[in-house]
Each structure stands twice: as C-alpha cells, then as structure tokens.
Simulated scan of single mutants.
Amino acid sequence: MKIAILGAGNIASVMAKTIGQMEEASCYAVAARDYTRAKEFAEEYGFQKAYGSYEEMVQDQEVELVYIATPHSHHYEHAKLCLEYGKHVLCEKAFTVNEKEARALISLAREKKILLAEAIWTRYMPSRKRINEVLASGIIGTPHTLTANLGYVIADKPRIIEPSLAGGALLDIGIYPINFALMAFGDDIESISSAAVLSNTGVDLQNSITFKYKDGKMAILNSTTLALTNREGIISGDKGYMVVENINNCERIRIFSHDRKEIENFIMPKQISGYEYEVRACIKAIKEGKLECEEMPHIDTLRVLEIMDQLRKEWGVSYPQEEC
C-alpha cells in the first residue's frame, strides 16, 4: 500500500523508517509546508514524491493512506483535508483537540466511506493481547486496582507549553495512562477525580487522575512533563499483581504471586519501532472495507477525548481554537 506522510517532523521520521522496513507498505509521498524540507525528507527515507503543500499531496491519485504527523492542534484541519479528497487516514494521537472535532471527522469519514483511525500505538501492540490474556487467566486473581505513570522532562518544548499547539501533559502523554486503564479495566467509570499543576501559559504540566469504576475497581494515573518516571503500569489482584514495564511501549510483563515472588516473565517480541502494528491494522481494515480499526474503534477514541475534555474543564485548561 502506498503511504503518504503529512508533516516532516521527528515522529514522521520514525514512521518513515518503519514503513521502509515493511513488506506490505511503501514510502510513497511526504508533504511539508516547505518544499525543501519535504524533498530532503523524501531523499533521506526513500519516498518517491515530495510536496511543498499538504493540498498538493492529497490530490495525488496514487496516495492510498495518509499518516498525519503534525501537532494535535492541527489534526482536525489536516484530517478533514485528507478525507475531503477521499484519502484513508491514520492520525497521530491525540486524535483531535476535543471530542467535538473528533465527532465531526468520524461523521465525514463515514459519509465518504473512508477508513479513519487514531494512531495510539499501544492499542495495536501485541502487549495489549498479552495483558488481557494474563488478566483472563486468573493468575493474579480478581483485579481491583491499577496504577500507571508516564513522565518525561519536556516542559520546555513548544508543543507542551504553547496553548496554540494544544499543549500540556494530558493530550501529549497523559493519554497513555488513560488508555492503559481503559484497555485493562474498561470504561464503565462511575466517577473521576483529579488535580493538575498548570504553567503560566495555562496548560497542565503534570496531573493525577483517579477513576472509580462502578464495580469497585480503581485506577490511579499520573503524567508529568517535569520529571522522569519509571513508566510502569501495575495491575493488582487478590492473588498477585502484574507489572508492565513501560506503558508507552511495553518491553516486559512480570507476574508476581501473593507472596510477591516473580512467577512469570513475558518479553515482548522484537519490533521495527512499534508503529508497524497500527499501519498493518489500517491496511487490513482497508482491504476488508472497514471504516475503523477494531483495535481502536471510533467509540474508544471518542470516550478518551470525552474524559480529557472533562478533565481540562475542571482544571480550567482551554485552547484558542476552542474559543472561536
């Protein structure tokens, strides 16, 4: 399948390297706002075409699937452009700034009968299936609590600090602990409580979120742009607990018994970058004529954005494009 990348930044480079090593996909086109940048990117990663505008690229009849790699502040605009020209879309997380934008895109994609998927890679990785298998096996008993954290020292990055780029810890990295909880415990949440530390620009620099589920389970989630964390996810039951090393790209899953002795150890399979799983899921869905990927259906994308909208409202965090 001929894949195009919209945007030529760091995350686009990772995807380009990944596609270049996949048998079922090819690096066809890349677009940037600056043609020179696009041309250099194309030459470096072996793309056939380079475009100096996004509008030019989506008019290329050969493009089959577009991966959107721009800041999430621009995802709505860029995904809408691709959909209007009949291109299947794999859009980087956060899918959009808010649920309202996501609903509009999903409606357009369904109207045009085009695949639209969110590229939150943890939803597509083999580790997700393994975690679910462990929970279903009963080896840790009945799960009751979950903790997950993600933290990097990135508070000085424009994409984090700038409200115009829909900055903050929540949309950039907090989305991973939230997805981790929803994948393990589901979304039948009774109540959500939270706290956040805001920057002088009005975005969240770090936050703590607690989900109380209707069946009594609890998930405690943390994300920060101010400190380095161990990125662990821990799911605890009445017979033991599971430690997921690096919830952002699982490396190993360790199982401990009721006496805290390690009894199982699962190493994740070798991968290209981890992005290949979402690309394969999109290719499979497109070939089957589906409008969404089963790994991350539209309803789940909307649920995550609904939760994040609610949290930002409580914290008083909003973005310029939401005030228009």
Rank of each mutant, 00 (worst) to 15 (best):
M1S: 13
K2Q: 13
I5K: 01
I5Q: 00
G7T: 12
G9T: 02
A12T: 10
M15A: 10
M15G: 02
I19C: 13
G20R: 13
G20P: 06
Q21Y: 05
E24D: 15
E24Y: 09
S26V: 13
S26F: 00
Y28K: 12
A32I: 02
E40M: 08
E43H: 08
Q48R: 11
Q48T: 14
K49R: 15
K49W: 03
S53Q: 07
V58C: 01
V58F: 01
V58S: 01
D60C: 07
D60S: 08
Q61K: 15
E62F: 01
V63F: 07
V66N: 07
Y67A: 13
T70M: 01
H72K: 06
K80E: 14
Y85V: 03
H88G: 07
V89L: 09
E92L: 04
E92V: 03
T96L: 11
V97E: 04
V97M: 07
A104H: 06
A104L: 10
I106P: 03
L108M: 13
I114N: 07
E118Y: 02
W121T: 10
Y124E: 04
M125R: 08
S127Y: 09
R128W: 03
R130M: 13
S137Y: 04
I140M: 09
I140C: 06
P143M: 03
H144G: 05
H144A: 07
H144Q: 10
T145P: 00
T147R: 09
L150R: 05
V153G: 00
I154G: 00
A155N: 15
R159V: 14
R159Q: 10
R159D: 09
I161E: 07
P163S: 09
S164I: 11
S164L: 05
L165A: 11
A166F: 05
G167I: 08
G168M: 10
L171H: 05
I173P: 01
G174V: 10
Y176D: 11
I178E: 00
F180A: 04
F185M: 13
D187T: 12
S191E: 15
I192C: 08
S194Y: 00
A195S: 15
A195W: 11
V197N: 09
V197L: 11
V197F: 05
L198D: 12
V203Y: 04
T210Y: 01
Y213Q: 10
I220L: 12
T229P: 04
N230I: 02
R231G: 02
R231D: 13
I234L: 09
M242R: 03
C250A: 14
I255T: 12
K261P: 02
E262M: 15
Q271D: 07
C282V: 02
K284L: 03
I286S: 09
I286R: 11
K287A: 14
E288N: 14
K290Q: 11
C293F: 03
H298P: 03
D300H: 06
I307V: 14
M308E: 01
M308H: 00
D309L: 01
D309C: 00
Q310N: 14
E314K: 14
E314L: 05
V317G: 12
S318A: 10
E322K: 05
